[in-house]
Computed example of a mutant assay.
Amino acid sequence: MAVYGGYETRPFRQETTAGIGAQLLLLALLWLAVGLGPVGWLTGSVFAVATWVVLTLALRRSGTRSFGPANHVTLARATLAGGVAALVADSLGGRPPVTVLVALATVALILDAVDGQVARRTGTSSRLGARFDMEVDAFLILVLSFHDSFSLGPWVLAIGMMRYAFVAAARVLPWMRGALPPSRARKTVAATQGIVLVVAGSELLPYAVAFATVALALASLVWSFGRDVLWLWRAREVRTVALTVVEGAKGRESVIVGRSAA
């Protein structure tokens, strides 16, 4: 996923504004296909405007003036996630059109593997693009966990809230803001969550199997986040020891300099 200033000459405002248009078009199609109601329209519209505002501000702060190709893919994923959110909100805990919901979510999950490939092949990877990708993933997982919670229980919401709880904790605990090393296990666990939630929400599995599968997914997510928190805590201890050593060395150096001057 990426934003790259030199890839295109058109201002990024055209792309972000087109995202709102794409979202409204999808909502209109859902209205025609499954009778999307006012709550769904409101949810999808609010999500579209919020995405436009946040993305535009982020692009401005980064100094970027144009969109990269991978960001187009992620913006399409955001549009699909907005459609899923509209369907879930419109059902108000009832039974949304499962086939359409699963189809939108499945395409969004498939595209999750596309934007990264596009960014790498075009050399347009960036921190902003990676963050955009991550936020779309987190939102889609949150919506899917909310949908599944009505059939499996409110505990499923823990899957969707896990990352947001981690971010909230990092705002209070500075040591949790450190950079984590790359991890294939972390990526695998994260990718599995969406697949499991979609399958469980498709109503194709018996209740017991769906319950056990989602519970296993949650357990793996707890393990993954727990491992990262432990790594950050240990890294904090290492940094504290290193800082103590450096400060001690500076103190001894100051004493030696003082004695030499005397």
Score class of each variant (00 low, 15 high):
1 M>N: 08
6 G>D: 14
20 I>P: 00
21 G>L: 07
25 L>V: 13
27 L>M: 03
28 A>G: 15
35 G>P: 04
37 G>I: 04
44 G>K: 06
55 L>V: 15
61 R>H: 15
66 S>Y: 11
72 H>T: 07
72 H>Y: 15
75 L>K: 00
83 G>W: 10
83 G>T: 13
87 L>E: 10
90 D>H: 08
90 D>T: 08
91 S>P: 06
94 G>T: 05
100 V>N: 01
102 V>P: 02
104 L>G: 03
105 A>E: 04
109 L>M: 15
112 D>P: 04
115 D>W: 00
122 T>Y: 13
124 T>W: 10
124 T>R: 08
126 S>R: 11
127 R>A: 15
135 E>G: 07
135 E>I: 13
138 A>S: 13
138 A>T: 14
139 F>M: 15
140 L>D: 02
143 V>R: 00
152 L>G: 11
157 L>I: 12
163 R>N: 09
164 Y>N: 09
164 Y>R: 11
165 A>C: 13
165 A>T: 10
166 F>P: 02
168 A>C: 10
169 A>K: 06
186 R>Q: 09
190 A>Q: 10
195 I>T: 08
197 L>H: 05
197 L>C: 06
203 E>G: 06
203 E>C: 03
208 A>C: 01
210 A>F: 02
220 S>V: 09
223 W>I: 11
224 S>Q: 08
228 D>A: 13
233 W>G: 15
234 R>S: 09
241 V>S: 14
243 L>E: 14
244 T>C: 07
246 V>H: 13
252 R>T: 08
254 S>D: 12
255 V>Y: 12
257 V>T: 12
262 A>N: 10
